[in-house]
Design a protein around this nucleic acid. Structure first.
Lengths: 338, 338
DNA sequence: TGATACTTCGCAAAGCTTTGCACGACCAAA
DNA sequence: TTTGGTCGTGCAAAGCTTTGCGAAGTATCA
């Protein structure tokens, strides 16, 4: 057990004055005489006094903590967003409590409950891929507890959120493929309930339409976001009697898995199959061929999410904003046919 | 401002009984009659009562929070270790407060101070690469506040720690190079003050000695752990009149930067230069050629660190353990000369 | 009926901080 | 001498929970 830290009471006892006087002296209250103020502040420094946040929290009903729930901590996208959240939180004197849902609905529900019990002042959440119902956020919404979603969102009419320009980005990717001579453009999608899946899929469709390419159902594969499942989905595409000449993957996990699969299949990237991913990873540049990718401003997404959160703290009932972050298509070698 | 949550006082008022009775009823105290107990518990459930951790913290002098300080959140190694810490923390009903030092000594000192002021029960730390002095941990040690280091450690005679078998792993890498025909084996080291730099360097030297290879000072480059600096270090090696035929990089950031640099230089991996990294990344398999690497059990390192932490909570003055985790050299294509 | 023994509960303190209000002391004016 | 004011400080409550101890009430026994 760590020793008790010094409290106002300790200082008061040592100086033979009351606790309230110490408290006031420390914040330079004008009603306390200058010498006493000086004496108190000196002692406080010497004893290394800092106010107890638990007591303050109890008094002010605030904990200066933000709960953050992400599907996992390890994926570059999430750790980078968290980094952005942490940055803004720190600026505001807040800490973040991180909980990983492991892409599990149940754990997500559990995390919401536990974090609220810990009295965080609100939550910043990216939904798990299993999550199809959203009642576990009712408590937050009904009680006006700040809540912000990012990337994988829901209930955007009630909850502020930060997302990428998913549809537009996917549309551009499709057109980029077309301009590079691809005609059978495949798309590996994520779970249908995820907002990013829907929107990127829509963008893909729009892109096809822009280029007057026919929609071919067999060119759309679906997977959960694990590397294994992505590999399966890729193989399915590769085994078509007429395999695609381009594959667009919903995120980096998927596209890296696809890349490996295609190589093992003995096909050339980009000549046999062009490849574009949706990612923010620096690894795009280190794979071979280097990966053309829609690049997220991940750190900035985290910052925006945190800003939205603090706005929410200020104005809990303001109409929810949705911030759409501009992505950019960084063209590298995986999509340039010779 | 979020509404106040229900407290014992609210429940007591609603039932017209005293707070203490409610408190006891909720924990099935035998002195409370069965019916009253039932009634109280029902109401508590209905009103969604959970004890206020601030009040409990104040009372018991515990916050059930662990401060975690890492150089950054984004690198796979750290996010994966954090993941392991979080896992064990959750098992024990603890949360982690994460603070990033951004590889800065000052921010590390700041983080230690701030986290302690937040009344975390202790700290799990990986030193920043700038850190050369360690007085900022005195407060913890003198006050018996639990502290655990991982990976980049110091004061191991006083503080428990979790590290990889750095020297042994580096030695094996060097021998592996030798067995694959490499004779001019270079090493890109990190900042000298880091324990991992020292130990891996020692292992490298031992490996050379084992293989009766001469030590050549110009084959040792140093960099801070940024990709940019790693690139510079690599170029220096490549520009030697007699460039190395193997490069061993202290971590993944370094080795991926080196890989890129070598390719740009027009040299072939592994035939011109073999490459081995020190990493836990799944990306090793997706780069081309796939990267031979010393693989850390990163998640497990986090778990061990957390376990050590909880032991420390139990026995703050027990002699500090140092846990050395076994790494394994996973041989892929980047080190196989034809 | 009075005393004893349980059963069932409430009071209050501790853990820490802030802050409105009151109180004592001292001085000046009436 | 009394009143009114100013200045410096302390009291106490609130925010929430746990728990030792005391008290009220009921039942049992002599």
């Amino acid at each position: 057990m760590a020793k008790r830290r010094v409290s106002l009471k300790d200082l008061a006892a040592e100086l033979n004055i009351s606790i309230s006087t110490v408290s006031r002296a420390l914040k330079n209250h004008p009603e306390i005489s200058p010498e006493l103020t000086r004496k108190v502040q000196e002692l406080a420094r010497a004893r290394n006094y800092t106010p107890n946040p638990l007591a303050m929290g109890l008094l002010r009903q605030e904990t200066r903590m933000i709960g953050v729930i992400v599907p996992d901590l390890v994926t570059h996208f999430f750790s980078s967003v968290i980094s952005g959240i942490e940055y803004v939180a720190k600026e505001n004197g807040y800490y973040i409590l991180i909980s990983s849902s492991s892409e599990s609905y149940e754990k997500e529900v559990e995390s919401v409950k536990n974090l609220l019990n810990t009295r965080v002042e609100g939550l910043i959440v990216c939904l798990s891929q299993e999550t199809r119902t959203f009642d576990h956020f009712d408590v937050l919404i009904n009680n006006e507890i700040p809540l912000v979603f990012f990337d994988r969102v829901c209930r955007t009419d009630e909850v502020p959120s930060v997302v990428a320009d998913n549809a537009e980005a996917a549309r551009q990717v499709t057109r980029h493929f077309y301009e590079n001579g691809c005609r059978r453009i495949a798309y590996i999608n994520g779970p249908e309930q995820l907002s990013i899946s829907k929107l990127r899929y829509e963008g893909y469709l729009q892109g096809l339409h822009d280029c007057r390419l026919p929609f071919d159902e067999e060119l759309v594969a679906r997977c959960n976001l694990s590397p294994e499942d992505a590999s399966v989905a890729t193989r399915k595409l590769l085994c078509l009697k007429n395999h695609p000449d381009a594959i667009f993957g919903i995120n980096d996990t998927v596209i890296f898995a696809a890349m490996r699969e295609i190589k093992q299949f003995g096909l050339n990237i980009p000549n046999d199959i062009a490849l574009v991913g949706f990612t923010g990873e620096f690894h795009s540049t280190v794979v071979d061929p280097s990966l053309t990718a829609v690049t997220h401003p991940t750190f900035e997404m985290g910052q925006e999410a945190a800003r939205l959160f603090f706005e929410r703290i200020q104005h809990p009932t303001a109409p929810p904003q949705q911030i759409e972050m501009k992505t950019s298509l960084v063209i590298r070698n995986s999509s340039k046919k010779e």
